Simulated scan of single mutants.
Amino acid sequence: MQVSTSHTRLAQGEFAGIGCEVMERGALSLNDTSVMNKTEEFDPFCVELFVGPLVWGILSVPCACVGLPASLRLLWALIQRQRRGLSNDVYMLNLTIMDLIFNIILIPGVINYFVWQDYATWRITDFFYCLSLSGRPLFMACICVDSYIAVVHPVVYMKTKHSKYRLVASALVWNLTLAFGVLFIHSVEPLFSITTLIFFTLCLTTITFCDGAIFLALRKPDPSGRSDVHPQKQRALQTITNSLVMALVSYLPPMVVFGFAHLIQQVVPVQMMFCTIVAVAYIGTTFGSAALPLLYLGNLGIFKDLTTLSFGCVKRA
């Protein structure tokens, strides 16, 4: 959530220095100097409006402390399941790697924002934040589409069950994600524009449609006419509900803020918008990087196994 140290040219209506932009440093022209004299210097570290970033930092640290070990544990469990042929969680494996990278970089990013204020560190953390903003919703959409095909169109799923299709899709997502990260670093316009609104709308619409279709399919009574839900179906319904809630909590606020940024800045000063609205929008994404691994670990029964082991140790004692 860091920004460039360049001066904001409010007189020309530019929204410079917010989010992922990295502007080239250099000598100011005469026009730039005149604009600078008419406007206040933009403060990327929100010294006067520190409440929003402080809330973001306070919540980011525990999220990283929880999300990092959870992502490591989930990654290990997914690798073991993949080796034993118990699942084909290629998308979830890639999403976990992305969450792991983000959680690793999160605490240094918070420390740099409040303490170090180093330009190079800011660029690195900003790049990985862009990866989380663009890569995670894409992989979540892939997971939902894969589950939708498996439940609603099982014949098609059996024909495309081979991992090569998911590996190709995962490689495409990674390439798109890296391209988005590089693009957002060099120019903020695609992030704070209709492009971001369309991107998040497509991802959230896909996730909502697939989860809704799966929910309706699992709620249908079986051929025997029984209307009660099988425990396995109940767990699947819980997984779908968690997926939809996490997607909306994590990416609905960024979609609104980034997609309508040019409208919001017409009524809210740029400095206040960044230090309050944008800071709050990042909290959902940060929370999702910790909550999603925990939810998936619960779906795999990891917590249940740990609880059983703990009670066994207590009984032996």
Rank of each mutant, 00 (worst) to 15 (best):
F42H: 12
S250K: 02
S34I: 06
L183T: 14
K159Y: 10
T121H: 01
G225A: 09
L68E: 02
N31A: 14
H186Y: 11
H262G: 03
R83E: 15
A317Q: 12
V145S: 09
L252D: 02
V155G: 08
P154R: 06
N88V: 04
M1Q: 05
C63D: 01
Y129T: 05
E41I: 05
G52S: 05
P53G: 04
I149Q: 09
K233N: 12
S87W: 01
M36N: 14
R81Y: 00
F192V: 10
L297F: 06
A16D: 13
V90A: 02
M92D: 03
Q82S: 14
S310T: 15
I79W: 04
L248T: 04
Y251R: 04
S132A: 12
Q232F: 04
S187M: 08
T208G: 06
F114W: 08
L306E: 15
A213W: 06
L100C: 10
L248C: 08
E189K: 14
V152D: 12
D146M: 08
V256P: 01
N103Q: 13
G13F: 11
L306W: 12
I143H: 06
I97V: 13
F303P: 07
V257P: 01
M92A: 10
L202D: 06
Y165W: 15
H162R: 10
A77W: 06
L244M: 14
L133H: 02
A317C: 12
A141R: 01
R25S: 12
K38P: 02
T39D: 15
G17P: 05
F15P: 00
V267R: 11
F45V: 01
W122P: 00
V3E: 06
E14P: 03
